[in-house]
Amino acid sequence: MAQGDDIAPIPGTKRVERVEENTSADGIELSAEQIVKLDSLPPASGDSYNEAGMRLLER
């Protein structure tokens, strides 16, 4: 949410507790130092699914 009004997380969950936890995150304010640190992290890499999982997705 510190990125601007045009950025919104889309969390997925099956449990009410996680929905409540996710929606309460809008009350957190990051310092400028924290934002710089997060922005400097390398992008995620690697596969999300193994070969068998990809075959299921490509049905």
Rank of each mutant, 00 (worst) to 15 (best):
A32M: 04
N22M: 07
A2K: 01
L41K: 01
R59F: 09
E21V: 09
E20Q: 07
Q34T: 04
L41D: 12
S40P: 00
P43W: 03
N22C: 10
N22A: 05
G27Q: 11
R59M: 09
D39V: 09
G46E: 00
P43R: 07
L30R: 06
V16F: 04
L30K: 07
S24A: 15
E33Y: 01
S48T: 05
N22R: 01
M54A: 03
E58T: 07
R18L: 04
I35S: 02
L56N: 01
I35M: 05
E17M: 15
A44S: 13
L38R: 08
E17Q: 14
G12C: 04
I10G: 07
S31V: 09
A25G: 13
P9C: 08
A8P: 02
R18K: 04
A25M: 14
P42S: 12
I7M: 10
P42R: 03
E33G: 07
N22P: 00
I28V: 15
A32K: 06
D26Q: 11
G53P: 00
R18E: 06
I10D: 08
G53F: 01
L57F: 08
A2Q: 05
E51K: 03
E20Y: 07
G46R: 00
D39A: 14
P11L: 11
V36K: 10
L30C: 10
Q34V: 09
S40M: 12
A32N: 11
E58Y: 04
G53A: 07
S48D: 05
P9K: 09
V16G: 01
L56Q: 02
V36R: 08
S45R: 11
G27N: 12
M54I: 13
V16C: 00
D26C: 13
D47E: 11
P42K: 03
I28H: 06
R18V: 04
I7V: 15
G4P: 01
A52S: 12
R59W: 13
D39K: 12
I10M: 12
A52R: 07
Y49T: 04
E33S: 08
A2N: 04
P9Y: 05
S31A: 12
E58V: 06
G12T: 11
P43C: 08
R59T: 13
Y49W: 13
D5S: 03
A25F: 10
I10A: 08
P43N: 10
V36Q: 11
G53Y: 02
N22V: 02
E21M: 14
R15S: 13
P9L: 09
Q34L: 10
T13N: 02
M1D: 01
L57G: 08
D47V: 11
S48W: 02
I7Q: 06
R15E: 14
N50V: 01
D39L: 09
R18Q: 12
D5M: 00
G53I: 02
P43Y: 03
P9W: 07
G27Y: 08
N22Q: 01
K14G: 06
S40A: 15
V16Y: 03
I7D: 08
I35H: 00
G4W: 03
K37W: 03
N50A: 02
